[in-house]
Write a protein that binds this DNA or RNA. Structure first.
Lengths: 254, 254
DNA sequence: AGCATTACTTGACCTGCGTCATGGCGACAA
DNA sequence: TTGTCGCCATGACGCAGGTCAAGTAATGCT
């Protein structure tokens, strides 16, 4: 949707969604921000202050953009529901997928340096977001050491993730690492670790893993033939999590 | 050197180096930290506070480690002189180079999440460092918005850099991007943009760019034959910066 | 329902880069 | 000087994964 709020690149909040927002506190307990605040033993008023500056955004639908490359940067966002894909289109018109962001995860951290988003972010399904004005968040972080620490940690983690993706691994290793990591991230948010739906197309996975879409198909087929997983269209069931983890181990470093 | 200061993984400061440290202020004006402080119009006392918590470390010599994977994390460091290579050894014993860090640049940002360094850092030549206790730096960042902002920016920038390296580019594109970026980073610190010395071995470049060392040789040869650069052992002269930048453009996004 | 569209799969073939093997050359020592 | 050692270059060859082409199946549109 092209609807924009003045002063931000985020689509307008659909007020209708606020009504059925009863499980907000439950969600927040699994969100990357307040998760840490709670873990740090931060008092309720701190968490309250964080909630004060949240804008709820959504629902966005498949294909809706959260922001586009070149949009003025002023906010990061936590994915509340759904999946967000970040990507760039290079000079030759090829798409490079930078990442997939699941509920509880943060988008926009790579935009802080520079005042425009360096990439696009698009919803892969129905997406709900918590938007945090970054200037406001920074000021709050100056007063709340736990929040500042959490921001540092989140960014540090993203550096590490990006570096491991950058490594030199075989197609099988990257595919296995992708599946295992997805499983772990879903499990961390309370979803099943062994049965889930791929919200992204094969071409997205391919662009993310620097493979051809055909190779993604073939590798998945091979993993299925080897009894490591079962896949039907976008539904995945991990059968042999152990050998998958072994295959992914050099990438994920564990 | 195995010499360690209690409570840190950084090698001990050689006091002899403090004596001839007259150009400290000049260096600091090009360092990633105080550079921003000055640019932000931060007052002298803030810069002074930053200087208060700096430990000067070095000189380290070629092959000396700044820290190793698994060392307890408690500090980040700015490279003051020389080149630092960060790398991991994967489960199969293969080395993966994560980055090269030139004077003015920061190492250790990917260690903030987790309390151990996730990689090794080794001096490629004679290296001098400014060591910043991270807990102390965090506290100071809470009081100095400019410092906090700079830390956020540095980390955000590293995410972006890691993601661009992760992309799917040809050997020529990656090599050109590597050379051009090196040139720009050196130029930003006051060195020549067109004539410089590669402080790293071909194998290091190869591991960084996910290429075979042989491919690095061949690509450099080709770039030389095409008149884009001249290279003799580790001395490089960029002759055709323009076409090099064109080749590197999709990677560097400009 | 019928058709178009998009996403995915599968097979055949091709190629960019890796691997292996060899040789050159500068640095350093004796 | 002469060896030797580490780093780098270069040629021959192989292969993982890309490209091209064709087919299938689910989904949306009219």
């Amino acid at each position: 949707t092209g609807v924009r709020v003045t002063g931000t690149s985020f689509p307008r909040l659909n007020p209708s969604i606020l009504a059925d927002d009863g499980d907000m506190l439950h969600f927040c307990s699994t969100c990357a921000f307040s998760q840490a605040c709670v873990a740090e033993g931060m008092d309720k008023s701190s968490l309250g202050e964080l909630h004060m500056l949240v804008d709820h955004v959504g629902p966005l639908h498949e294909g809706d953009h959260v922001f586009r490359e070149g949009d003025r940067f002023d906010a990061i966002a936590a994915v509340r529901a759904g999946t967000v894909k970040t990507y760039i289109i290079d000079a030759d018109g090829r798409e490079h997928v930078l990442g997939f962001h699941l509920p509880g995860e943060i988008i926009g951290l790579n935009a802080i340096d520079g005042d425009h988003y360096p990439c696009n972010a698009v919803a892969l399904d129905t997406v709900m977001l918590c938007r945090f004005s970054f200037p406001k968040l920074s000021i709050l972080a100056g007063r709340l050491p736990g929040l500042q620490k959490q921001l540092f940690k989140l960014m540090s983690r993203d550096i590490g993730k990006a570096l491991q993706l950058a490594g030199d691994w075989s197609a099988d290793q990257r595919m296995a690492a992708f599946i295992v990591e997805l499983s772990r991230r879903l499990a961390a948010r309370g979803f099943s670790a062994t049965r889930f739906r791929l919200t992204m197309a094969r071409t997205d996975i391919a662009n993310y893993l620097r493979l051809a879409p055909e190779t993604v198909s073939r590798v998945l087929k091979r993993l299925q033939d080897d009894g490591l997983l079962r896949i039907d269209r976008r539904e995945v069931e991990l059968v042999g999590l152990k050998p998958l983890e072994t295959l992914a181990a050099p990438v994920l470093r564990n």
